[in-house]
Write a protein that binds this DNA or RNA. Structure first.
Length: 573
RNA sequence: GGUCCCGUAGCUCAACCGGAUAGAGCACCUGCCUUCUAAGCAGGGGGUUGCAGGUUCGAAUCCUGCCGGGAUCGCCA
């Protein structure tokens, strides 16, 4: 099972091979010029370049072989040597039938290795803000994509729960005489900024925070229990946010989880001669000979003896390798930390902490900017909390529901549920449909306008199909198990064969936006199809059944893709 | 200053790592709701892909230079 283009690539690849040319040249893709053909192959031109032959002659040789294949309705050579292909409706019908019968909708399953994804990265005692949005949304989507691709995908929240900030909070609590007393998230949110500010101003205060950090890390029972208490409170707060977003984690590890591994790891690295003294610190040199860029060493222990986040990142690799032996570790973290991860990866390889077979990838993402092109702020100039952002989205969705007079027959609770789904769809789709790597402009008004290329548009199309299928069932109109392709059906039918190609690309490059694009195209093609022919009143039962089957397949693909993006589809809206 | 990334319609973004006439959405203009959800559909205008060279059958994509923007550059995360 595969996409139609992949099937054709095999046929055309074999034809190239018969001409004594490499198979890969037979790669077939959807045509750039739908007015000329459905599919195209550009391999003849590439072949001609290498063999110094006339590309049209090469193409002609391939075409002569292809002519004996019944799959093609049309084979033409165009321009400098494009091979243009149309398939017969019969071939298309049979292919669709096999897609519809497959519960994976013809998307291949890869090997079952473990992939670990590191995303989210919330910090203890700090409210989650819009800066956590991209990491959470993109990371969760990539986890879902990897999982559907057949991997054992594990998402780890990797909290910041072990650095100097912890000591700041503890020493602040101590000064207030509140150490060990019950705390709420609101308390923590008030305490942390004050503690941080005080430490910044006052060196003696900072010193106490460092001492507290050290005592905590050395296992002081009183500090540990206070720490555990605000960890628990913070995690509750995070879970509220992540639940509202529909972002899932398999593991709730943090920097503290690997504390015990650091000292043995450092000893091991020293023994290997990988970790060396430099300017009073213990570092790993990670420069390589042909480096053009400067590559500072990774610092394991600062000159004051404390560890840094590169140290915990390395220890986390050790931990993950021991526990899960992953084939890949994927870091969904701000692009600006590119250099840091380069250092960590090099250090891990140099120290032999991870085998060469394990892929370490920093799937970085760009900054979320406001409409002024600068990092996103509230109107007041502050950082917007994640929960406020979500609440605003829900409010807009609610207003739009009322305005459009949709869902009028529903009760308050159901409308609330739908407004929430619409809001999350709007926020996630707007984020994921941008290229991961580049910065993106966050515009709540644009994404909740619910028109055009938005999450709610996709939900709307999916819901229309569900509604149609319910009506069909009520009328006893069956979804057919065979396809009948007429002119109004063909564009949609052809598009439905592309899913596996887009999925593979999204998985290979860790780019959910490829799936967003395809889902949007599919929804548009459906909407156009839906407007051009009335399905339930179609009298030809075979044609009606086929069209219902097309709708059913669109619905399944949309549900699958939206699921991979972490977007839930309501029954009605 | 060194290194890396980016510059595509008025705005926000695509373009399957060199392919044909650079595509979408928003905004703007014209039509379409007494049959399946108009958060919709059909159509229209809008581009020297920052600039200048080069490589080749073919460049938004590769190379060089320049202009403009951003990120980063050992003891913060």
């Amino acid at each position: 099972m595969s996409s139609l283009a992949q099937k054709l690539s095999e046929i055309v690849g074999a034809a190239f091979e018969e001409q004594g040319l490499p198979r890969e040249l037979g790669d077939v893709r959807v045509s750039d010029r739908p007015d000329l053909a459905q599919f195209q192959c550009n391999g003849a031109m590439a072949a001609a370049k290498v063999a110094k032959k006339n590309p049209r002659e090469v193409a002609q040789g391939v075409v002569d072989t292809l002519n004996s294949h019944a799959e093609f309705e049309k084979i033409e050579i165009a321009g400098p040597g494009f091979i243009n292909l149309n398939v017969t409706d019969e071939f298309l019908q049979n292919h669709l039938k096999s897609v519809a019968q497959d519960e994976r909708l013809s998307v291949l399953r890869m090997g079952g290795e473990t992939v670990m994804l590191d995303y989210g990265g919330p910090n203890i005692a700090k409210p989650m803000h819009v800066g956590h949005l991209r990491a959470s949304i993109i990371g969760d989507s990539l986890r879902r994509i990897c999982k559907f691709g057949g991997y054992n995908a594990l998402g780890d929240v990797h909290m910041g729960d072990w650095g100097t900030p912890m000591g700041m909070i503890i020493s602040e609590l101590e000064e207030r005489g509140a150490l060990g007393q019950p705390l709420t998230m609101d308390d923590l949110e008030e305490i942390y900024p004050k503690a941080a500010a005080a430490c910044k101003e006052d060196e003696a205060r900072m010193e106490r925070a460092r001492d507290a950090t050290r005592k905590l890390q050395d296992g002081d029972p009183e500090y540990r229990s206070a720490w555990q208490q605000f960890i628990d409170v913070s995690i509750d707060g995070m879970k509220k946010n992540f639940d509202a977003l529909g972002v899932h984690f398999d593991l709730w590890e943090g920097e503290a989880s690997v504390h015990e591994l650091i000292a043995p790891m450092a000893d091991d690295l020293k023994a290997k001669g990988v970790a060396v003294e430099s300017e009073g610190a213990l570092v790993i040199e990670v420069e390589e000979k042909d480096d053009k860029k400067e590559m500072p060493p990774l610092i394991l222990y600062k000159s004051d003896g404390a560890v840094m986040y590169g140290t915990t990142d390395l220890a986390t690799i050790v931990d993950r390798v021991q526990k899960y032996n992953p084939a890949k570790i994927l870091y969904v973290v701000d692009q600006r930390q590119g250099l840091h991860f380069e250092q960590v990866f090099r250090a891990a390889r140099k120290g032999g902490l991870v085998s060469d077979a394990t892929e370490l990838t920093h799937a970085g993402f760009g900054t979320m900017n406001g409409q002024d092109g600068k990092p996103f702020k509230t109107r007041a100039g502050g950082v917007m909390r994640l929960e406020d952002l979500i609440a605003m989205g829900i409010e807009k969705a609610q207003a739009r529901l009322n305005e459009a007079d949709l869902a009028a027959d529903m009760n308050e609770q159901e409308r609330g549920t739908i407004a929430h789904k619409v809001a999350i769809a709007a926020i996630k789709f707007a984020d994921l449909s941008n290229n991961r790597i580049s910065d993106y402009v966050f515009d709540l008004d644009q994404m909740t306008a619910f028109e055009g290329k938005t999450g709610p548009y996709l939900l709307y199309q999916a819901v229309r199909i569900k509604s149609l299928l319910r009506k069909a069932a009520d009328q006893g109109a069956d979804v057919g198990d065979a396809f009948v392709i007429q002119d109004q059906d063909r564009a949609l039918a052809l598009l439905l064969t592309e899913l596996p190609d887009h999925f593979v690309l999204a998985l290979k490059n860790y780019t959910p936006h490829v799936l967003c694009d395809y889902a949007f195209k599919l929804a548009q093609a459906f909407s156009s199809f839906y407007a051009s022919c009335h399905i339930l009143s179609e009298e030809d039962a075979a044609l009606r059944g086929s069209r219902l089957a097309l709708c059913d397949l669109v619905q399944k693909q949309l549900a699958l893709i939206l699921g991979l993006l972490g977007i839930a589809v309501p029954e009605r809206m």
